[in-house]
């Protein structure tokens, strides 16, 4: 018995070491660093307790960035999931050009974010961009989509939805293909319309997939940062700044490592909270076969 126990630990050791070295230790160090002040030439770093967090709490930019991030999550997650489901339902049917359609829907996901951001940068360019050219035909022109604090977030949200929906579609498509066709036939014979079938049978049965996609979508909303480098750099006036980009700014532009560490700790806590609550609340409503 004892030997089995040792063997077990030996077997997970390599994975555990790698995970610890690159994930757990950095997390602990970050949390540790967030409790110390910024070191300068004349004053070494010292323990300040929650001092860095208090500074953060009184930083209006932090609250703005946090609000932006929540808006970004609320704007991207439900829409991209709904769109993913609709697209999966569309391409799951036996139609001509099914393969091409699936590829077309999946294409945005295959593009690197940098390329996608450049593409959308062109769409949003005032006057000569695609969007303005189309709107120009209706007499609206000269909108500075990414330069206006009121429009910049919706613009980023639209691009992110476009990029992510195809990815989530793949999961829905895989789940749809495991659905036995008799379930629809049985429901259809009983008089159920497509919609009733979707609402009463298909959607509940897709719950595990929805759950999985939801967790990923929410995490992504807090992890996506590449597009900001290309498109807005968090501007104008932090209107499109997100937590991760703000951490980057603090660490490498303002050279304020303790602030960055405190921000990172906040982000980690937020993500942990989200993951736990999703598992707790949604698990009850998910049907696993």
């Amino acid at each position: 018995m004892r030997k089995e126990w040792v063997t077990g630990y030996l077997l997970i050791l390599p994975a555990a070491v790698v995970l610890a070295a690159f994930t757990h230790v950095p997390i602990v160090r970050t949390v540790h660093d967030s409790l110390f002040s910024r070191a300068s030439a004349i004053r070494p770093s010292r323990f300040v307790g929650t001092g860095n967090f208090e500074t953060l709490a009184s930083d209006p930019v932090f609250w703005k960035v946090l609000g932006n991030n929540l808006a970004f999550a609320l704007g991207t997650v439900p829409v991209s999931i709904a769109l993913a489901l609709v697209m999966a339902l569309l391409v799951n049917r036996k139609i001509r050009g099914q393969g091409t359609l699936r590829l077309a829907y999946f294409l945005p996901t295959m593009l690197p974010m940098i390329a996608a951001a450049n593409l959308w940068l062109f769409f949003y360019t005032p006057d000569i961009g695609l969007l303005d050219q189309i709107l120009g035909a209706f007499g609206v022109s000269g909108t500075n989509w990414l330069g206006d604090p009121d429009t910049v977030m919706p613009c980023l949200i639209a691009m992110t939805v476009w990029k992510e929906a195809g990815f989530f579609m793949i999961f829905y498509l895989a789940a749809l293909q495991t659905q036995p066709p008799e379930l629809w036939e049985a429901a259809h014979l009983e008089g159920a319309s497509r919609w009733v079938y979707f609402r009463r049978v298909l959607f509940p049965m897709l719950m595990p997939t929805t759950m999985f996609v939801l967790i990923n979508a929410v995490l992504n909303a807090f992890k996506l940062v590449d597009h900001l480098f290309i498109m807005t750099k968090g501007g104008p006036n932090n209107a499109s700044n997100l937590l991760l980009y703000y951490i980057f700014e603090n660490a490498f532009a303002f050279n304020d490592m303790p602030a960055a560490a405190a921000l990172t700790t906040v982000l980690l806590a937020l993500l942990a909270l989200l993951a736990v609550s999703q598992f707790l609340f949604l698990d009850k409503r998910v049907h696993y076969r």
Binding site: E182, R200, V201
Partner: peptide, 8 residues
């Protein structure tokens, strides 16, 4: 043949 019951 497969019963076609709704599992949920």
């Amino acid at each position: 043949q497969s019963y076609a019951l709704f599992p949920h």
